[in-house]
Amino acid sequence: MSATHPVSLSVNGEQISRLVEPRETLADFLRRDLQLTGTHTGCEMGVCGACLVLMDGRPVHACLTFAVQASGAVVETVEGLSESAEIADLQRTFHERNALQCGFCTPGMLVSAHGLLTRPGVPSREEIRDALSGNYCRCTGYEAIVDAIETVARRRSAGERAARFLEEPA
């Protein structure tokens, strides 16, 4: 076993410092060391898109990055994006449209959708499908996901944002 290596990075707004084995992927680091299990691993080779997180603001595969490479980076996972309510409208619309079944692909889908919708303009259905070209979903057949993202894109261009998706404590 190789020696551990110090890493220090921002995850969901918290500064994290840990010692990790260099061979540990960012996905395993998030899931195992930080218990952020919303990031899923479906193929561990960058094909399925279940492990997408935001790194320095852009969607990347957490399975295709070693945690040591992410030292110094700013990482946001589905948990952080949920708590900050940045994707509340996406989550709400996915829920209403039933744009998920087993939910395993969903965090990656949300991260891809978020990445797409932070770019300027209102994407067409074709552009939405293109943005999801690396996100595998076995359950839905994709249409509901495309519908949900399209709806949010239109609402955002009209200036609407959902305030929260998670329930507030009573």
């Binding site: 960058g46 898109g49 790194m55 852009r58 969607p59 595969h61 990445g115 943005a131 996100n135």
Partner: peptide
């Protein structure tokens, strides 16, 4: 570029 893999791959 748009034909190279997928958006998240192209980001890294």
């Amino acid at each position: 570029a748009p034909h190279v893999a997928h958006p998240a791959i192209r980001n890294r």
